[in-house]
Write a protein that binds this DNA or RNA. Structure first.
Length: 515
RNA sequence: GGCCCGGUCGUCUAGCGGUUUAGGACAUCGCCCUUUCACGGCGAAGAUCGCGGGUUCGAGUCCCGUCCGGGCUACCA
């Protein structure tokens, strides 16, 4: 039998990195075994469901390149794939009748107040809290009929067997056992007729022939209920795989406090989908050897449940950046340029920086946005020039967003000058001669189509002519004059890309700044 | 309160009773490369494997206890 897994999110907000990890593991697992990956929307809680959120889930999944073989957006043999629609189709009603008939479920007419009081008493008595009986679990048919005749609202609960052990064999944690007397009777059908997760999900997993229930460890405590439900129906249990979760640096569940958790924000910050997936896969999973930077194909080939760690992992932003830098360097320049163009074409990229609050220690979002828009314009108007600039910066950035700031000096007429750099490098008397020399060189025809080696030779000729011991006094003032900064690509390479006209204009301006 | 899960360098991890002076990676520091910043290369520092008992000739690896952390304990998922 082929492997079948499902990503079954409840679209109640943004798609965060924890959900992405969940989806990624399943996708990798399905691809590894040549099985099917199914998308199912769990929207049985109508008060929390939002269609915008569902759209965000689909958009995000599309961006990261996690694909499904069946789902609400593409259909499939098990349609519909939204639980609200499956409810309308009568799927859950049909199965609850079966369960009721077998005596594994029962109607309970307790009021919320009664349940609340029950739990309080249980806590005080140091007993497991939850619904273990009351009058309805063992209510007589007459009592039930009477309550129904009165029109009292009711829920349908699962009848968990008592005085026995419930054992599951988890693929990551091994054998886990519960005393069934500590497992309460969960609600299967709510008073409004909607199924709960416990019921809808398990019924769907069976109907859709899911072979592995891969989910976060927060579900482990409900696993005995789910296992019992399969047993009650007489269905084969799928393999349970309870994955560790991703937590924030404080060890708590990832939330807004830990910085960005929305996957689309990572896209907007200029992370490559392959780097993000690579990084996310490495939290809680390892190929078993020392490999870290891996391609999609390598991840699929290496992915295995045996490599999943039982303990939760923290999200290390620094390592993500490193991996992203590796991914950028792995691209050939043409691909990279296309990647950048796509990145800049996405509306959310600009939107993100527009609404981002400035933070001390990181570049001002306004500046990032400005330089990014400049890069976009240049790619549109002078693609070849933009490509040359990007080639030179490819080795020194970590995110796509970094290209804006890094390439800025290539694209503006006169780059903004770093005053400290000017103060440091424009005071040597020889600098005036250097600038004069550069202007003269630029007016010579031979420089117009020159490569880096020609600029190299030209500057070294100046060094020799003035008997300078080191190249520094030549290189540094020139760099500041041309880029406004003390850091950046190799000077000769950058000069070759700028060309004599731009060089001349910048040197001319720099002359005016000399001490 | 109850039930369950987890615990190896700051972080992600390798380890599946002996080849371990516990390996790799990120971050940190140093050196090299070099016109700068990066990239790359080399190296340093960093974990008595939460703690305490066992089992064993031998334990990070098995068992028990304990502590700490987390999850669940909804007519949420």
């Amino acid at each position: 039998m082929s492997v079948r897994v499902r990503f079954a999110p409840s679209p109640t907000g943004m798609l965060h990195v924890g959900a992405l990890r969940d989806a990624l593991f399943k996708s990798l697992f399905a691809r590894h075994w040549g099985g099917q990956n199914i998308l199912r929307i769990e929207d049985t809680d109508r008060t929390r469901y939002s269609p915008e959120s569902e759209q965000e889930f689909i958009d995000t999944l599309k961006w990261v390149g996690i694909e499904f073989d069946e789902g609400p957006h593409i259909g499939g043999p098990n349609a519909p794939y939204r639980q609200s629609e499956r409810k309308e189709a009568g799927i859950y009603a049909e199965w609850i009748v079966v369960l009721l008939g077998k005596g594994h479920a029962y109607k309970a007419f307790d009021t919320p107040e009664q349940l609340e009081e029950m739990r309080e008493i249980q806590m005080i008595n140091k007993r497991p809290s939850g619904y273990f009986g009351g009058i309805w679990r063992d209510g007589s048919p007459e009592q039930v009929a009477a309550a129904e005749a009165e029109g009292k609202p009711f829920v349908i609960r699962q009848r968990i067997p008592r005085d026995t052990a419930i054992v599951i064999e988890d693929a990551i944690r091994g054998r886990v056992e519960w005393d069934s007397n500590t497992v309460d009777d969960p609600v299967l059908i709510k008073a409004d007729g909607m199924p709960t997760y416990h019921f809808a999900s398990m019924v769907d997993d069976h109907v859709m022939e899911i072979t592995h229930i891969i989910r976060g460890e927060e579900w482990l405590s409900s696993a005995p209920k789910h296992a019992c439900l399969f047993d009650s129906f007489g269905w084969d249990r799928p393999i349970f795989v309870h994955c560790p979760v991703i937590v924030g640096t404080d060890g708590k569940k990832l939330s807004k406090r830990h910085g960005a958790t929305r996957v689309l924000d990572y896209a907007a910050r200029g992370f490559l989908k392959q780097a993000l997936k690579n990084f996310i896969a490495l939290i809680g999973w390892s190929p078993g050897d020392d490999r870290e930077a891996m391609t999609e194909q390598e991840l699929i080939e290496a992915f295995d449940i045996k490599g999943i760690q039982p303990s939760p992992g923290k999200f290390d932003y620094e390592k993500l950046k490193w991996l992203n830098g590796c991914a950028i360097r792995a691209l050939d320049p043409e691909q990279l340029l296309q990647e950048i163009a796509d990145y800049l074409a996405r509306p959310y990229t600009t939107e993100y920086f527009e609404q981002l609050e400035p933070e001390p220690g990181s570049p001002n979002p306004k500046d990032v946005l400005r330089t990014l828009l400049l890069l976009r314009t240049t790619i549109e108007t002078d693609r070849a020039y933009a490509l040359e600039a990007i080639k030179l910066e490819q080795q020194r950035v970590q995110t796509l967003a970094d290209f804006g700031e890094a390439c800025e000096f290539f694209f503006v007429d006169l780059p903004p000058m770093d005053q400290k750099a000017v103060d440091k490098w424009f005071k040597d008397p020889v600098t005036a001669s250097l600038f004069a020399y550069l202007l003269e060189e630029c007016s010579s025809a031979y420089l117009s189509e020159s490569g880096p080696e020609v600029y190299d030779a030209s500057l070294r000729a100046f060094q020799a002519a003035y008997g300078l011991e080191k190249l520094g006094p030549v290189v540094h003032p020139t760099r500041v004059a041309l880029t406004g900064k003390t850091t950046g690509p190799g000077l000769f390479e950058l000069m070759s890309v700028l060309g004599p006209a731009r060089i001349a204009a910048r040197v001319e301006r720099a002359k005016g700044l000399l001490k």
